[in-house]
Design a protein around this nucleic acid. Sequence first.
DNA 1: ACATTATATTCGGAATTAGGAATATGATAT
DNA 2: ATATCATATTCCTAATTCCGAATATAATGT
Lengths: 130, 130
Amino acid sequence: MTKTNTSSSLARVSELLQVISPEPRLEILLAIGTGEACVCHLEAILGYRQAYISQQLMALREAGLLDSRRDGKYNFYRLAKTGIFELLQNAAQIAEANLIKREPAMHKKQCACPHCAPAFSNSILVEPTH
Amino acid sequence: MTKTNTSSSLARVSELLQVISPEPRLEILLAIGTGEACVCHLEAILGYRQAYISQQLMALREAGLLDSRRDGKYNFYRLAKTGIFELLQNAAQIAEANLIKREPAMHKKQCACPHCAPAFSNSILVEPTH
DNA sequence: ACATTATATTCGGAATTAGGAATATGATAT
DNA sequence: ATATCATATTCCTAATTCCGAATATAATGT
């Protein structure tokens, strides 16, 4: 007895598609890729204001698409489900668009976070100034 | 030199996802399945008003997702791209929903269209009353 | 304690969208 | 020509979403 179309299943699919579809959210998902990214990072890469990025991340997180991990000042976001890339690939194909990258995002523009400036972060080489 | 993320590619993917995401449109896409359906049909199956169905069909058609074929009074709609079902399957999986059928939709509720009442439509058995 | 940096949240008005009512169009039948 | 049925379209407003500004919180440094 396989489950058939229930309104709640439809609603969940609808919600998923709605929540990822705004262009800035697609940009964020692609920027995160298979890696992780902090807010300042996405701010630097994508050029949106911090509060705006944060809002979009919240929406994606509440939808269960992103997980976050705090590391000191930084809050790193990553995809909660891998299937998202297949979905985007599929959508791109239908839309006749080639746009999907799934690398962990080597960042051209930089912020001060550990990922952008690894030499200066969490490093045992940097001694406390006590 | 493979094409990279252009804003227009992103925009197309965004538009695609947006246009299919409303629940009534998902219902319509699933109801059409791999077959075709006229408006009165979808009206009967889904219970939305005619004008509303028509509006949603227009939106999907303008987005290039549906083709239509006129047959007398009836206007039959079918999916313009097959990939749509893979997309929906994918979305359902991520949303932890099982809902996708891709049969040509055997209709429980009926309207007077050739597909619902095949015995009375276009049939050589029904002679004109001249 | 105070400053600074990273991030989150709240508020509100502008812009957009949803969807109902009414009506128009197009095909067929009489 | 008129009626009827299937479908499309226009109009309008309530509801929603977008996104900026301002502010709050949380961690770290000095």
